[in-house]
């Protein structure tokens, strides 16, 4: 089912299934992009980003991007654009009423732009989007209700933003706050590179070059921010995506191993068992 819902307050919600499509556009409002199946590729300047059902992308107002779908399965995209006034009202109302924003991490922060990168699709945002989508798919027209969900989507997005940006920046061992933010911006480049190329052979040199850090600097700071080395992060991501394939497809395990970028089935099975205390086959049977 495809729909483009433009609310009276100019918030826009799109849902649709696409295959092999290329679109080029300028993002007029702050947007959040999701996919519920397959993956969608976005190009922003020289950066290429792929989003999967476990992640989402945010785009600031005015960002030029190209989105392309080139996937063996139809891609179900879902996106929300928030009108500027709605965003401003949300920020004001949240900052005034909720003391979460008064915690040290939020002090004196009035950014109008967010870090344009890939974030994990988890927590309350996952539940709020799931409910919102359910109602829209079932033809709900009550804009008050839809806006209630959009308001809560922003609350839960801010929560993820706080965890992914401010809390991680705070963990970095630098005195200067702007250095922390800049290093984290580069680490997020590394993170999005891993998210996008997780099924390829990734060398540390490529990763360091993409994130504009030296290999040593990348290794040291990545661990401080994410509590994992880039390699551990990559393995975790591959295993997480293997779980999705095991659950939602009939692909044989050997095929999944190569789809997620592992070379050897036995090391995949060993790592899977270490992480989830079950084997891939048992996981598939129980899912």
């Amino acid at each position: 089912m495809e729909y483009l819902k433009i609310l009276k307050n100019n918030n826009v919600i799109y849902s649709g299934t696409r295959s092999h499509k290329l679109t080029q556009q300028s993002n007029t409002d702050f947007s959040i992009k999701f996919v519920f199946s397959g993956n969608e590729n976005y190009s922003i300047g020289r950066r290429n980003l792929s989003i999967y059902p476990d992640s989402f992308l945010i785009l600031n107002k005015g960002t030029n991007y190209t989105s392309a779908v080139d996937c063996t399965v139809p891609v179900h995209s879902f996106s929300i654009s928030f009108d500027e006034k709605f965003m401003d009202n949300f920020k004001n109302c949240w900052q005034l009423k909720d003391d979460t924003l008064l915690k040290p991490n939020y002090n004196n922060r009035q950014e109008s732009e967010f870090s344009e990168t890939i974030y994990p699709f988890k927590g309350d945002l996952f539940f709020n989007i799931k409910h919102l989508k359910y109602h829209l798919d079932h033809g709900v027209q009550d804009e008050m209700l839809i806006n209630e969900y959009l308001h809560h989507c922003l609350i839960s997005y801010f929560k993820i933003y706080n965890e992914e940006i401010f809390q991680k920046a705070e963990r970095l061992n630098f005195l200067n706050r702007s250095t922390k933010i800049e290093i984290l911006r580069r680490l997020n480049l590394a993170k999005e590179y891993l998210y996008t190329n997780y099924n390829q052979n990734i060398s540390l040199d490529d990763l360091a070059e993409y994130s504009c850090l030296s290999v040593n600097h990348l290794l040291r700071t990545f661990k401080q921010a994410f509590y994992l080395t880039p390699h551990q992060f990559l393995v975790q991501l591959r295993l997480q995506r293997a779980q999705v394939l095991l659950k939602n497809t009939d692909y044989p395990v050997n095929e999944i191993v190569s789809l997620i970028g592992f070379e050897c089935p036995s090391s995949f099975i060993r790592l899977f068992r270490e992480h989830f205390q079950t084997t891939p086959l048992k996981y598939r049977q129980s899912a």
Binding site: N128, H131, M144, L145, E148, Y149, H152
Partner: peptide, 12 residues
């Protein structure tokens, strides 16, 4: 199952 939906309908 859906707090926001029930909150909205009860409030209405």
């Amino acid at each position: 199952d859906d707090c926001l939906n029930d909150y909205h309908s009860l409030k209405t």
